[in-house]
Simulated assay, not measured.
Amino acid sequence: MFPEERKANILRILERNYRIQVNDLTEELKVSESTIRRDLQDLEQEGLLKRTHGGAVKLENTSFEPTMDEKEQVNIAAKAEIGKRAAALIEDNDTVILDAGSTTLQIAKNIKSKNVTVLTNSILIALELSKNNDVEVVVTGGYIRKEIVSLVGPITDKIIKSFRVDKAFIGANSITIEDGYTTPNIDEAHTKSIMIKSSKEVYIVADNSKFGKVSFSKIADANEVDGIITDNGIEQHLIEKYMSKNIQIIYN
Rank of each mutant, 00 (worst) to 15 (best):
V165F: 05
V138A: 06
V165G: 01
G141C: 07
P154L: 04
L124C: 00
E136L: 12
K158H: 08
T156E: 10
V152T: 15
N133F: 07
E136T: 14
I144Y: 04
G153Q: 03
K158P: 00
G153F: 02
L127Y: 05
S122T: 12
L151Q: 01
Y143F: 13
E147W: 05
V138Y: 15
F163E: 05
I159Y: 10
T140C: 10
P154S: 10
T120K: 04
V135T: 11
N132F: 09
I159G: 00
T120F: 09
S130C: 03
L124R: 12
K146E: 11
N121L: 07
E136R: 15
L127T: 07
D157L: 09
V138F: 15
S122Q: 09
G153S: 03
V135W: 00
S162T: 12
I148E: 09
T140D: 00
D166Q: 13
I125S: 15
G141F: 05
G142P: 05
K146Y: 09
E147P: 02
G141V: 08
N132S: 09
V149H: 12
I125P: 02
L151A: 03
R145F: 09
T156N: 15
I148W: 08
E128S: 01
N132Q: 06
L124F: 14
I123T: 01
K146M: 11
L124Y: 14
P154G: 05
L151H: 03
L129I: 07
G141R: 06
I160H: 04
V138N: 11
D134C: 08
I155T: 15
R164V: 08
E128Y: 02
I144L: 12
A126Q: 04
T140N: 03
T140K: 02
K146L: 11
T140G: 07
V165A: 01
V165I: 07
I159F: 14
T140V: 06
I159E: 00
L127W: 03
G141T: 10
I125R: 07
V149F: 14
I144A: 11
V139T: 14
V135M: 06
I160Y: 01
I155A: 13
V135R: 05
L127P: 03
N132R: 08
D166C: 00
G141N: 07
L127G: 02
P154N: 06
T140S: 11
K131W: 02
L127D: 00
D157V: 14
T156I: 06
A126I: 06
K158S: 12
V149E: 14
D157K: 15
N132M: 09
I144T: 13
P154E: 00
L124D: 12
I159R: 05
E147R: 13
N133R: 09
L127M: 12
G141S: 07
K131T: 10
D166V: 01
R164C: 04
I123H: 04
N133K: 12
I155E: 05
I159S: 01
